[in-house]
Design a protein around this nucleic acid. Structure first.
Length: 908
RNA sequence: GGACUCAUAGCUCAGUUGGUUAGAGCGCCACAUUGACAUUGUGGAGGUCAGAAGUUCAACUCUUCUUGGGUCCACCA
């Protein structure tokens, strides 16, 4: 045995411990099976790590994710499950590319893509990604994450690329991926499309102009974007609007609108036009607004693209405007309208500007040829093991996403996110998956140069895009040259495959895929429910016909102590590595686990972390003390040691129920509760009471050994470092705590008297202490205690030493009080007679009174209900439903009554 | 506009099927202290569970409304 140092210094041990864990290989379930830590056919428990973006470093939110998952993983590993936690990182195409561009620009390269060219630019991105990756891996290790590094994956590596190409081809062949000319969200800065849910909104003041197209035009319209009016093809009005009803269906021609193009304006009716907003008439620009586009489709209007990908006006608006930026064009249109006296009003309104979630640039809706996944397309599903959906059944992707959650094959925790999930699916439009970025999975589509350059050619097959998993160089139809689509895929396409692309897909017989899929839990922040969780469900159910995970556990965001988001500009960021260094990783882990509830944001402050630093030190010191009392160190699992005193019985009973509760709470994702229960036991019951008593009673080697063993195991998933270090020093340098068996609830016949008696002793001690503090009585050397509950005299006598020790009394005389004073013990101290309630914790008399009162409450109610239900008239006349409800109520109340009565009886 | 969520001690939050005297941590006040631990111990103060109504034998808990925070989605011509 070694003697533990006086305080716990995490920095001395943490790195060393992690290296030992890693070297042991036990993070890898195969090694666990090989070395007998778990059975070959044990139940599997698997989590794939939500891959952090390779855009820099991990923040405290990532730390929270790691800690929660590590807790589950370590718990299940110790339980003997075949446990896999698979690490990886995400290339995060758009985020990484824009980040690198920014960095290069800071270095003085003004237009990085132009100046470097594709190859060199990608080299720079890859270099950055690699550096970020290395940092991230180190940070994961620092947090103590027991990830199986041998299986590490990257969303853009070769294996994942194969998976991406395979899935793309499958979807294309099933007709779920199509290439279409549609309105997309275009970010002029990123020079790429972005998905609908990558658009953010920012409220701003905007100028709102009211004008007519021409002097003789009958309808006035309003807009915040006059320059787009150059591409108008219609005016939409509400069909019920009396002002405009007569014009519906008419067509007007305007020459040289605002000195620009000629317009042909048709007046159309649309229910969605609000009569009260603006003039009640809305200029329809089909090419540059999604709603306008939809109206145009309905009414067969032409679509004129007037803004290009660079944010400049196209040739469609005439020589006066062509080549101007949007801003310049707007100014010019307004000037022109003013000159011609067409502008009626100019006011300021609040309006929501759509911006790119990555760079904040205003989004320009433009029509463009892109690749889409069609979510409403009906298709026949292949192999399918889902409930309710069979092989060959006709479904849509939307239906798959809905069905697995509706049928509870996937359970979302907390439950309320179900509603949000379904609502999102209901509003889901086709998913635009092509991006005009360089960094990412290049789309596995090839075009025959001949077929696409010369539409006159008679080989019609050559006009079709060729989708191929393997790279091709020649057109399969004409043998001519081909060109791969230069675009890349939305980053969420590859992360959507994450649960299975990491486990061996497309090899459907891969052992990992068979062993660990579907994964057990997906643990992530609620902020990426749509981006990611929903897409994994879509992809996995479609590709494999199974669910990707059984449970989705959503945690909240970490905020600062004032509830603000952490951000660099506010300077309130808590860097996980900093605080780990300062307070120890275990303290940081606890501060992220405790005091939170699922799905709710939590506030974190340094004081909170410091509090848990104190606790880890407390655990260290308790262990130090216990180790000094233990003479025979041994690793012990199930055998409960013999008890000699009331305190022994009490603490083992408490420990046993703590084990039970902690297991149940962890398994039901109530990690915070579990930790608090455990802390309560460790600090309050064990350190403050039992260890103090142990000092007095002495001779507790065996029982302390058992308790120490057990609490180290219980704490290990929460605080792996400090527990492992204590374990190493006290028990074993060979056998690591991380693979010990997690404690299990034992069958101890519960003597309720043990609890009750211990509470009496506790209460007497607290009573004496409290009286002393309040009355400022000098510490008495002699104390006479007379007790009215005669049968407890022996109890007090047996525990007199404890009372003397903990209440600091030198001589204690116990006697039975002659007169009955109900439940009180009298103290004679310094000649003053005082009383203390005997049953402060479990006040049996009061409990009886309470139960009697409740019974008196419920009993007449039950009798009343019984009478009512025996009344034939009532039963015959009342609707069946009412009778059923009454019957149910009666059964419930009867059960309650029986429970209350038996509780009362047990007290007598 | 549609939804979700929160409101409990000075602060941060628990309180899972309605049923003990509503809990914890931090903070605060008083006291203690050489032997595991000042990163400590003991005792104490502090709550009409946001407000109103309803359901019930019984409401912090369920329903409705009101007030005040937060979040998401849609629209924004």
């Amino acid at each position: 045995m070694k003697k533990l140092s006086k305080t716990y210094e995490p920095q001395l041990y943490e790195d060393k411990i992690y290296k030992c864990w890693e070297a042991s290989g036990f993070f890898n379930p195969d090694v666990c099976v090989e070395k007998g830590v778990c059975e070959e056919n044990a139940k599997h428990f698997s989590i794939v790590l939500p891959p952090p973006n390779v855009t820099g470093t991990l923040h405290i939110g990532h730390a929270m994710m790691l800690v929660i998952q590590d807790l589950m993983i370590r718990y299940h590993r110790m339980k003997g499950d075949k446990t896999l936690w698979l690490p990886g990182t995400d290339h995060a195409a758009i985020a990484t590319q824009t980040k690198v561009e920014k960095l290069l620009m800071e270095k003085g390269i003004k237009e990085p893509k132009k100046e470097l060219g594709k190859e060199k630019f990608l080299e720079a991105v890859n270099k950055f990604a690699q550096a970020s990756h290395d940092t991230i891996v180190n940070q994961c290790k620092k947090m103590g994450s027991s990830l199986d590094w041998s299986r590490e994956a990257f969303t853009l590596d070769e294996e994942r690329n194969l998976a991406v190409r395979t899935v793309f081809k499958k979807m294309y062949d099933d007709g779920l991926i199509y290439r279409g000319y549609r309105i997309v969200n275009w970010c002029p800065h990123c020079q790429s499309t972005i998905a609908d849910d990558e658009v953010e909104y920012k409220e701003q003041r905007a100028k709102f102009y009211t004008f007519k197209y021409s002097v003789d035009f009958p309808i006035t319209i309003s807009t915040t974007r006059p320059e787009t009016k150059l591409g108008d093809t219609a005016i939409a009005v509400n069909p019920k609007d009396k002002r405009y009803k007569k014009y519906i269906g008419q067509e007007f021609a305007i020459k040289n609108f605002a000195g620009g193009p000629d317009l042909k304006i048709k007046i159309i009716a649309d229910e969605n036009v609000e009569r009260e907003f603006g003039t009640g008439a809305l200029g329809v620009t089909p090419a540059h607004s999604l709603t306008d586009y939809e109206m145009a489709q309905k009414n067969g209007l032409p679509i004129i693209k007037i803004i290009d990908e660079a944010g400049k006006m196209t040739s469609a608006v005439g020589a006066n405007y062509e080549g101007l930026t949007v801003k310049e064009a707007r100014k010019k249109v307004i000037e022109n309208l003013q000159d011609n006296n067409l502008l009626e009003k100019e006011e300021e309104i609040n309006n929501n500007l759509s911006i790119c979630y990555r760079c904040g640039t205003p989004i320009e809706p433009i029509p463009s040829r892109q690749w889409f996944i069609e979510v409403n397309k009906k298709f026949k599903i292949g192999d399918c093991k889902l409930k309710n959906i069979k092989k060959g059944q006709t479904v849509t992707l939307k239906k798959l996403m809905q069905e697995v959650v509706k049928s509870k094959q996937i359970e979302i925790i907390p439950e309320r996110f179900n509603k949000i999930y379904f609502h999102w699916i209901d509003n889901l439009r086709d998913w635009c998956i092509s991006r005009q970025l360089w960094y990412g999975h290049q789309i596995p589509v090839y075009y025959c140069k001949q077929g696409f350059s010369n539409n006159q050619l008679s080989i019609s097959n050559c006009k079709e895009p060729i989708v191929s998993v393997e790279k091709i160089f020649k057109c399969p139809h004409c043998g001519g040259e081909v060109e791969q689509d230069p675009d890349t895929l939305d980053t969420w396409f590859s992360s959507g495959l994450w649960t299975f692309s990491t486990l061996g897909y497309p090899d459907l017989n891969a052992s990992d895929l068979k062993n660990y899929h579907p994964t057990s839990v997906m643990e992530t922040g609620y902020d990426i429910l749509f981006f990611w969780v929903a897409r994994m469900i879509l992809m996995t159910t479609y590709v494999l016909g199974v669910i990707p995970f059984e449970k989705v556990y959503l945690h909240g965001l970490v905020r600062d102590e004032q509830g603000r988001k952490m951000s660099k500009s506010l300077g309130n960021v808590i860097d996980p590595l900093d605080v780990c260094k300062k307070y120890g990783t275990d303290a940081v882990r606890l501060s992220l686990l405790l005091g939170n509830s699922p799905g709710n944001d939590c506030k974190l402050s340094e004081e909170k972390i410091a509090g848990f630093r104190n606790f880890s030190n407390k655990l260290w010191n308790m262990s130090r003390f216990m180790s000094l009392q233990i003479s025979n160190f041994k690793i012990q699992n199930d055998r409960i040691p013999e008890t000699k005193t009331l305190a022994d019985q009490y603490i083992l009973l408490k420990l046993n129920s703590t084990i039970d509760v902690v297991c149940r709470l962890i398994e039901s994702f109530q990690f915070s509760q579990a930790g608090e229960i455990l802390r309560d036991f460790t600090w309050t019951e064990l350190a403050d009471w039992y260890l103090e008593i142990a000092k007095i009673e002495g001779n507790k080697s065996e029982i302390l050994n058992y308790i120490l063993n057990t609490i180290l195991k219980l704490w290990h998933p929460f605080m792996p470092f400090v527990t492992e270090q204590i374990w190493t020093e006290i028990y074993s340098e060979e056998k690591m705590l991380m693979i010990e068996k997690f404690p299990q609830k034992q069958n101890i016949s519960v003597h309720s008297e043990v609890l009750e008696d211990f509470y009496i002793i506790k209460n007497i001690i607290t009573g004496i202490r409290s009286l002393r503090a309040e009355n400022k009585i000098e510490p008495a050397k002699k104390l006479n205690v007379s007790i009215s509950a005669g049968d407890k005299v022996n109890l007090l006598k047996a525990n007199a030493e404890i009372i003397k020790g903990l209440a600091r009394v030198e001589e204690l005389n116990i006697s039975k009080k002659a007169e009955k004073t109900k439940t009180a013990i009298g103290f004679v101290e310094s000649g003053v007679e005082v009383f203390v309630d005997l049953f402060g914790a479990i006040d049996i008399e009061a409990e009886k009174v309470r139960l009697q009162k409740e019974i008196a409450n419920v009993e007449p109610y039950v009798i009343g209900l019984e009478k009512k239900l025996n009344n034939i008239e009532f039963v015959n006349n009342a609707p069946e439903k009412v009778v059923m409800i009454e019957k149910k109520k009666l059964v419930e109340a009867q059960e309650k009554l029986i429970k209350l009565k038996s509780q009362l009886n047990s007290l007598k």
